[in-house]
Simulated assay, not measured.
Amino acid sequence: MSDELIRRNPCQVKGAGSVHTPERPTVTVKEVYALAETVQPRYRALVLMAGFLGLRWGELIGLHRRDVDLEHRTVRVRRAVAALSNGQREIKAPKSAAGKRTVSIPGVILPDLQEHLKRFVEAGAMGVSSSGPRGRPRAATPSTCSGTRRAVRPGSRGCTFMTFGTRGTRSPRQQVPAQGS
């Protein structure tokens, strides 16, 4: 057709050019806080930043102390950590050029971030903001459990959120009872 050898394309499939993706469910503020209450205190800030700032796992574990500016209430996303097939971690730029960005911190989570920086982040500008319980860097991929989603959406199956576990260590999996139980 583009070479003008035929008048119309005989290979037309009805509806083939359109993709219908269902709307992805999002969590409510109440559900983000419910999840933040179920994880160990050192991971609370990660849950809140994922929920309120929309940061991906790799971006969260790629943050350093210098990326979090509490005075101006911003987080600069400049790198992400990815898991390679050989089990190694790769520190790289975010997925797209738009991934390098500055995100505003809502005032409601500012006290949680202040506490997190004080208690759990290594000293100095390069301090990793998401080290594990033993001071090791966070795993490049999140651990999952079936109990976490039920903590957010009682009665549901599977897992939407991660428990932020570290490879080689076991973290307690906490569940909150379903509402009304």
Rank of each mutant, 00 (worst) to 15 (best):
R44H: 11
D112C: 07
P111T: 00
C11H: 15
V176D: 07
R8L: 14
V77D: 08
G155D: 01
V103P: 00
V108M: 14
R89A: 14
V68Q: 06
P154E: 05
T144L: 10
L5G: 12
G165H: 03
P106N: 06
A151V: 13
R76C: 12
G135E: 00
M49A: 15
R24Q: 14
M126E: 15
V176A: 07
S146A: 14
L48N: 10
N86T: 00
Q12A: 12
S131D: 03
V19N: 01
M49L: 13
L110V: 12
A125E: 13
K30E: 15
R78Q: 04
K95D: 01
R66S: 10
A139P: 08
G165P: 04
N9C: 00
R134F: 07
V39N: 11
T169A: 08
R150A: 09
A125M: 04
L84G: 10
M126R: 07
W57H: 15
P25S: 09
E71C: 12
N86M: 00
R89M: 13
C145R: 10
L53T: 14
Q175R: 09
A34N: 10
A98W: 05
G17I: 02
W57V: 06
D112R: 01
L110H: 09
P142D: 06
V77P: 06
P137K: 03
R173Y: 09
T141F: 11
A93V: 00
G107Q: 12
P137M: 05
G51T: 04
S85K: 09
R7E: 13
T141N: 10
